[in-house]
C-alpha cells in the first residue's frame, strides 16, 4: 500500500483519522452539553447511547482504529522529521511556525494520556475511590458521576488542562487538515485558519465550562 509509506499519503491518513476524531469531539461536546439541561437529560442521552448495543461497539472499534492510525503515523512522521532536521540554529527565530504547530506531537501525546485516564475514569470506571459510593451503585447515573468527580479540584484542573492541550492540538490541526487534503488555496487558507481558531476555542470554552461550573458549585443537583 503506497499510501502507508508515502509522505503525503501518510498525512492524508493523519488528516482523515483526525477528522473523524474531530467529529467525535464535536458530537461529544454536544452530548455532554445536555448536562446543563439537567440530570435526566444527560442520563437519558447516555442510556440511549448504551442501548444501541453492538452499534456502540462497532463505533468504538472504529474510533480506536482511527486513534491507532493517527497516533502511529503521528509518531512515525515526527521521528522522521526530527531525523531530517538535525541541526537547530544558534538563534531560534520563527516567522510563522508557532507554539501550537511545533508541539503537535506533545499535545497529541498528552491527549492520548488524557484519553486513557478519561476512559478509565468515566467509561471503565476503575477509579472508584474518587467516585462517590452512591454513583458506583447506580451505573446509569452518569450525571452524578460527572458532577461527583468534578467537585474534586484536582480532577477539574486535569480536565481544564487537557482541554487547553486539545485547544492547542486542534488550533493547528483543523486548518492543517484542509491543507493536507489539498483543499486550501491562498484565499481559503486564512479562512480555514480562522475556522480552526474559532472551533478549537469553542471546544476549550465548551468543555472547560463543565468542570469549572461544577467546581464553583453551579451544577450541584
Amino acid at each position: 500500500m503506497e499510501i502507508l509509506t508515502n509522505t503525503v499519503g501518510r498525512k492524508v491518513l493523519m488528516a482523515v483519522t483526525g477528522l473523524f476524531m474531530l467529529f467525535f469531539v464535536i458530537v461529544h461536546l454536544l452530548g455532554n452539553s445536555t448536562i446543563f439541561v439537567g440530570p435526566s437529560a444527560l442520563n437519558t442521552y447516555a442510556e440511549k447511547l448504551h442501548s444501541l448495543g453492538p452499534l456502540v461497539w462497532a463505533f468504538r472499534a472504529f474510533m480506536l482504529a482511527m486513534l491507532g492510525v493517527h497516533v502511529l503515523f503521528g509518531v512515525l512522521l515526527t521521528l522522521e522529521n526530527w531525523a531530517a532536521n538535525p541541526g537547530k540554529y544558534a538563534v531560534n527565530r520563527k516567522l510563522k511556525a508557532n507554539f501550537s504547530s511545533e508541539t503537535m506531537i506533545w499535545t497529541g501525546a498528552l491527549l492520548f494520556a488524557f484519553l486513557v485516564y478519561h476512559l478509565l475514569q468515566f467509561t471503565l470506571r476503575v477509579t472508584p475511590d474518587i467516585i462517590p459510593e452512591a454513583v458506583a451503585k447506580r451505573p446509569g447515573d452518569v450525571y452524578a458521576m460527572v458532577v461527583g468527580s468534578f467537585r474534586h479540584t484536582a480532577i477539574s484542573l486535569i480536565y481544564v488542562g487537557a482541554m487547553v492541550v486539545l485547544f492547542l492540538h486542534l488550533k493547528h490541526g483543523i486548518q492543517s487538515f484542509f491543507q493536507s487534503l489539498g483543499w486550501s488555496n491562498d484565499r481559503t487558507l486564512p479562512r480555514f485558519e480562522t475556522i480552526g481558531n474559532v472551533l478549537s476555542a469553542l471546544f476549550l470554552l465548551g468543555y472547560s465550562a463543565i468542570p469549572i461550573l461544577i467546581l464553583v458549585g453551579f451544577l450541584t443537583r
Binding site: 503525503v8 498525512k11 504547530s101 493547528h172 492543517s176 488555496n185 487558507l189
Partner: peptide, 25 residues
Amino acid sequence: NCTNHYECQAACPKGIHVKFIARLN
C-alpha cells in the same frame, strides 16, 4: 514530512505560496 508550519513561505525570497503544497497534496 510537511506538518504545515508555513515557515517555508515566510522565508521564501520569492514569496512562493503554500497553496502549492496543497496542490501537490
